[in-house]
Design a protein around this nucleic acid. Structure first.
Lengths: 159, 159
DNA sequence: CTCGGTGCAAAGCTTTTGCATCCGC
DNA sequence: GCGGATGCAAAAGCTTTGCACCGAG
């Protein structure tokens, strides 16, 4: 029997929750309710988000958190790879959940500000070349293409 | 007879100066001395720089400029492709001169903060794939690898 | 002479920090 | 109960904006 979408989501959160606990224990950090609440909120968001909207989301749910704790927890989650941080050209940082989702790169539409995701194996080959030729040990990468998407609603193409 | 390094640099600036004038005329913008002074200062810098250091550089040379004008002029220079703007993970924007230099991507050392440059033709192939498969018109891209460089002085490797 | 551009300072936005309080361990 | 974590607010960085003055066209 196939699990429903909801069950899948729950399963992913269970796993993420478990990984976060392991990380906190490994680093001798405290398992505070705020940290888990923030993690859960993040995994309920489907697209990229910034710190302020995450903070407002939680405030709207009458959860008592501070911006400082949100920033602090995001740092932890980025460190243990459960969340990815992006700087898409602007000074505002965007985040997205990272566990259980294929690693990918981004297409950023400069007209309608949509963010599309794509994968290409050649990026791995480039990374390998960089490590061999430059003796550079790659830990992570970011590849962004900026341009115009083909969404019918983008920049009112259909008007 | 080969031109000296100094003459080469002058030649590049002459060309850049000419292109900037054409851009300003095309956009009906004024050819103010501040704009040319900032352009010249930028083309005398060999590595990546931020707004504040460019501003301080000019102040130290007793040139009367304001941060506002530096920001404004940088926007123009980025728009006409004479300068490139980067966001290397931090909120601080870095810039570099763009004319007469091969387009390239970056290796950012997270230990010693050195920035290395490299080129790989496969990025063009990925771009082409993105345009074909996603119908996305690419205007520009940024590819950064974050990791550890092999410089002997990096992170005091030699101690 | 006009009005776009500039310098300066104030304001805006995102992120960090200091400190008293709180609570996980 | 100890010391790390939190909430709050203030402060810090980078960038933008408002306004009076200046000078390019």
């Amino acid at each position: 029997m196939e699990p429903s979408k909801t069950e899948e989501k729950t399963d992913i959160y269970q796993e993420v929750h478990r990984l976060f606990i392991k990380y906190l224990e490994r680093k001798s950090l405290r398992k505070t309710p705020e940290r888990f609440a923030i993690l859960e909120e993040i995994y309920s968001i489907q697209e990229h988000f910034d710190v302020e909207s995450l903070y407002i989301n939680m405030k709207n749910k009458n959860y008592r958190v501070s911006r400082a704790t949100v920033y602090n927890t995001l740092d932890l989650l980025v460190d243990c790879k459960l969340v990815t941080k992006h700087q898409f050209g602007k000074s505002l940082a965007l985040y997205e959940k990272a566990y259980g989702f294929k690693q990918h790169d981004h297409l950023i539409c400069t007209e309608c500000h949509r963010i599309l995701e794509f994968c290409d194996p050649r990026i791995q080959q480039i990374q390998q070349m960089v490590e061999e030729v430059y003796g550079f040990k790659v830990m992570e990468h970011s590849l962004n293409f900026y341009g115009v998407c083909n969404d019918p609603d983008c920049a009112n193409k259909n008007l």
